[in-house]
Design a protein around this nucleic acid. Structure first.
Length: 226
DNA sequence: GGCCAGGACACCA
DNA sequence: TGGTGTCATGGC
C-alpha cells in the first residue's frame, strides 16, 4: 500500500543508503545552517558555513560578538543575506537573554515549550524550528519541507496545499515516535526530492515510481466510482 | 538574460 | 485563515 510510510522509508533507505544527516559538526552549526538554508539549496549554504568556520565564528559567543555587517558579508553567498543576518542575530539574542548563550541549557527545556519559544523568534518558522529540535536537540519532531509536501502530493496521500501541521501530523501519527527514524526519513525524502521536480510529474529514476502510478490509478478508479 | 532554489514575514482582504 | 509581495545571490 502506498500509505505504508515504513515501507516507503525502507525502500528509500535501500535505494539511497544512510544519509548521515544533518551535515554539521556541532548543534550550533545545525542551528545556523537551518537558518541559512531557508529558501536555498544546501550547496549554497556550504560556502557560508565554511567561511564562518574559517573565521572562528561558529560558536555562540563569537557570533554574538560579531558585528552585523561582518556577519552579513560572510553569509553573502546565501540568498537574502540581510534578512538572514537579522534572523541569526535574533536567535543569538534569545539564546543569551534566556539561556546565557548555552545551547545545552536551551535544550533542557521541555520540547513543546522550546518549540513555542523558537517560533516566537524572528525568522524561525515551523520548518526551521523543527530542524533545530530534531537535528540539534534530538527531539522527535518530523521536519516538513517543500520536497516532503510535493512527494506526498505526488503519491496521492495529501492535497497539494496541505498545511505544515497536516503533513507533520500525517507522519507522526503513522510512525513510531523515534527521533533517529525522523532524522533519516527526512534525509531520505530530501534525496528523493531531487527526482520529484516541480515541472515534471515523475522522473523515470524515481524509486517510488510504481507507488506514484498506483496512487494515480487508485484516484482514477475512485473518480469513476463517484 | 531568465528562471529557480530544502522559508519566513508583513500586509491585506 | 489564506493569498501575495518582498527579501535579493548564485548556478544552470
Amino acid at each position: 500500500m502506498p500509505d505504508d510510510l515504513l515501507e516507503i522509508y525502507h525502500r528509500l533507505l535501500t535505494h539511497f543508503g544512510p544519509r548521515h544527516w544533518w551535515p554539521a559538526k556541532t548543534p550550533f552549526e545545525v542551528v545556523i545552517g537551518a537558518i541559512l538554508t531557508q529558501a536555498v539549496a544546501w550547496r549554497n549554504v556550504e560556502k557560508a558555513i565554511a567561511a564562518l568556520e574559517k573565521a572562528g565564528l561558529l560558536t555562540p559567543e563569537a557570533l554574538y560578538r560579531c558585528p552585523t555587517e561582518q556577519l552579513a558579508a560572510m553569509i553573502h553567498a546565501t540568498l537574502y543575506y540581510r534578512e538572514k543576518t537579522k534572523k541569526i542575530k535574533a536567535f543569538l539574542a534569545y539564546l543569551f537573554q534566556n539561556h546565557t548563550g548555552d545551547l545545552e541549557q536551551m535544550f533542557r527545556l521541555p520540547p513543546d515549550r522550546l518549540r513555542r519559544e523558537l517560533l516566537n523568534i524572528y525568522g524561525i518558522g515551523e520548518e526551521t524550528a523543527d530542524s533545530i529540535l530534531l537535528y540539534a536537540g534530538g527531539f522527535p519532531f518530523f521536519v516538513v519541507d517543500s520536497y516532503t509536501k510535493r512527494i506526498l502530493f505526488r503519491l496521492g496521500l495529501l492535497p497539494e496545499k496541505a498545511s505544515y501541521r497536516m503533513v507533520q501530523d500525517y507522519f507522526q501519527a503513522r510512525l513510531p515516535k523515534d527521533s533517529q527514524l525522523y532524522n533519516e526519513y527526512h534525509a531520505q525524502l530530501d534525496a528523493l526530492g531531487q527526482y520529484v521536480c516541480k515541472t515534471r510529474p515523475l522522473c523515470s529514476e524515481c524509486p517510488l515510481l510504481d507507488l506514484c502510478a498506483y496512487a494515480r490509478e487508485n484516484k482514477e478508479n475512485q473518480q469513476k466510482q463517484d
